[in-house]
Write a protein that binds this DNA or RNA. Structure first.
Lengths: 188, 188
DNA sequence: GCCGAAGCGGACCGACGGTCCAGTTATACC
DNA sequence: GGTATAACTGGACCGTCGGTCCGCTTCGGC
């Protein structure tokens, strides 16, 4: 597979940064593919050539932020990285995942909107959920770790957190505290 | 406001039953307004005259099922109806709400898809959440009942339950058990 | 400088939710 | 029974969307 041509690479960057800016400024749901193309100064066909479809583009915008957390998990220092005592490892991961989910609410909303199969089954979410399941099982081997991993992951969905923030007037720390208490139910 | 004309009432029933059947058989997301009209044997304009928009039609299909549970809550016998001891009242409501959410997964999926503001803020969900909040607060006045009401309600979303069922192979009782344990975290 | 492959852009497509309005029909009143 | 009228009807129509297609342009190895 030959390397990307220079004009193609330039357009990829233009599209990614235009998309990131529009998504951030106006909310993912309100930005059409045509507007991204226009704002990036390319044709719509070019956008679909670089990123197979809308989902692919959103994934590509999210990717660098995902990579940071994933690296901290697999290669970082304890308690987030490997080697910590189980309860601390779970608490650290929950906290890091919460921060990630909070920061990237806008993008995550778009994924959630694709439907549960596309959302929960997408590779990034699968990775978070698998990690969560493993850390839960390490804390309490007798529990239904698979269910609780999904339940805690669901509690960090962008749509519910956005609603609690904007309509119910809760703040970030109140939501974090709730999730932590919820996570307490996995203890023996 | 004069009563509905007889032809209008007949068409309302036709549309409702056609919609209920199609939603049930093919999943709400895959049924367009045009197909409902066709299947009911009326024009598309008629559908939009009876039910303001897609959301209104879905609400109307769900309404009778909502009414049954609401009545049991406000006028039924304890522990679901008023008068029971707090912990039992909460457990009974959680169980009834779970049954309701499970039975009506297909319709609820459609609401969830409208976005968090339309979903959580719609009158039916508001009622469930308010009831949940009151029963949680009765069990443990010191807890953030508003957050936990939303969190437990979220655990019963149709999209997550559908995913756990069809893709993760969990069954109804396993999910119910998980939610019950999650609900344990509201105890003092 | 030549040439084939890769990239480009915007006209085009089908599907959707929702609107409009000219023609039709039920009903209240005489 | 006849008539006036307000409500109802249906399907053509609209704007928007994600996604495709393809004739033309540009890049980069030779």
């Amino acid at each position: 597979m030959p390397a990307e041509r220079s004009d193609a690479a330039r357009n990829r960057e233009r599209i990614l940064s235009a998309a990131a800016e529009l998504f951030d400024r106006e909310g993912v749901a309100h930005v059409s593919m045509a507007r991204i193309a226009e704002s990036a100064g390319v044709g719509k066909g070019t956008v679909f050539r670089r990123f197979a479809d809308r989902t692919g583009l959103i994934e590509a915008v999210l990717e660098p932020r995902v990579a940071r957390l994933r690296t901290a998990l697999t290669e970082g220092t304890p308690p987030l990285g490997p080697g910590a005592e189980p309860a601390e490892a779970l608490a650290a991961f929950l906290d890091a995942l919460f921060e990630f989910a909070w920061e990237n609410r806008a993008l995550n909303r778009a994924f959630e909107h694709l439907g549960p199969d596309a959302y929960y089954a997408n590779p990034v979410c699968q990775f978070w959920i698998a990690e969560l399941r493993a850390r839960i099982a390490a804390v309490n081997p007798g529990i239904d770790a698979d269910y609780f991993a999904h339940a805690l992951f669901t509690a960090m969905r962008a749509d519910i957190m956005d609603y609690l923030l904007s309509t119910r007037g809760m703040d970030k720390e109140r939501i974090r505290a709730g999730i932590e208490r919820l996570a307490g139910s996995v203890q023996r």
